[in-house]
Computed example of a mutant assay.
Amino acid sequence: MSISLSDRRAVTTHPIAEVLAERWSPRSFNPSAQIDDAQLSVLLEAARWAPSASNLQPVRFIAARRGTAEFDAIVATLVGFNQVWAVRASALVVGIAVTAGQDGTPHRWAEYDLGQAIAHLSVQAHTDGLHVHQIGGFDPRAIADHFGLADTFVPVSITAIGTLGEAAALGEPYLSREVASRERLPLDDLVLVLA
């Protein structure tokens, strides 16, 4: 079963940029597609130029391509549900929030800045014909231990990156989720005040 990208476009109540309307988070990655150094560097460059409170840039990344020991180590930290499909991605990027400076001063906005950086990476990926799926189901301590991260370097998310594969290869229950209609809460539920 193939998934038409036009079928995945968000149905919005107000017009938004096409790159945002078309962006979605597949699990059906092509297990033979590769991502090269240049492609991965462009995505990380987009993340680097995200807004940052006081320009502290309290974000770091671990980027690993399928077929490397680092990729396998990241996959091993994923909860079983995510391991099934993420192993097919071309690359995995661990997003790390640097929660304090070298002098111990807390970086209050670190996770917010990291979220913006990953959002920039996601939009750049879609612009470049790639797809991403962000993952929260993993063991942050295992990532920190494996890569020798300092206590202030907190793994927050993992982003799977690749090109679309065949949805049917996922099997159930993943296939049903892959082809389910895209939904969001109505804007009226999200906006508390619009003055």
Rank of each mutant, 00 (worst) to 15 (best):
S41A: 15
G115N: 03
R141H: 10
L175S: 09
V87G: 07
E45P: 08
A86W: 05
F61V: 00
Q34L: 13
G162R: 12
Q57P: 02
T163W: 08
A76Q: 08
P15D: 14
A63R: 00
E18Y: 12
F71A: 09
V123L: 11
Q57N: 05
E22L: 14
L56W: 12
D189Q: 15
V132N: 05
T77C: 04
G104E: 03
Q83N: 04
D7V: 00
T68N: 04
E22G: 14
Q102F: 07
S54E: 11
I161A: 02
S54C: 14
A195D: 14
G80N: 12
L192P: 07
L114V: 05
P26S: 06
S41Y: 06
G162H: 13
V11P: 07
A144R: 03
T152Q: 15
R8I: 05
P140F: 01
V84E: 08
A50V: 06
D103A: 02
G80Y: 10
I96V: 15
R184S: 07
L40A: 08
G171Q: 02
L185G: 07
G129W: 02
F71W: 10
L40E: 09
R88V: 05
A64V: 04
P58Y: 13
D72K: 11
A142W: 01
E178N: 04
H14P: 08
E178K: 02
N30P: 00
L190T: 10
A125C: 01
H120P: 09
L192M: 10
S176G: 14
D72R: 11
V93G: 04
D139P: 06
V123R: 02
A50T: 09
L43D: 04
A86R: 01
E45N: 13
R141N: 10
A47M: 06
F153C: 14
N30C: 12
A91G: 09
R8A: 05
A97Y: 11
E18H: 12
D128K: 03
N82E: 09
E22S: 15
G80S: 13
A50M: 06
L92T: 07
D37Y: 08
F138S: 01
V123W: 07
I74Y: 05
A69C: 05
W49E: 10
G67C: 10
S54M: 14
Q83C: 04
H14Q: 15
G162I: 11
R108T: 12
L185V: 08
R66I: 09
F61D: 01
V193T: 13
L43V: 06
T13L: 09
V179L: 14
N55L: 12
R48F: 00
P58C: 11
V79M: 13
T12G: 06
G115I: 03
A76D: 09
G148R: 10
V75E: 01
E172K: 00
G80F: 10
P173E: 02
Q116A: 14
S157V: 15
L44Q: 08
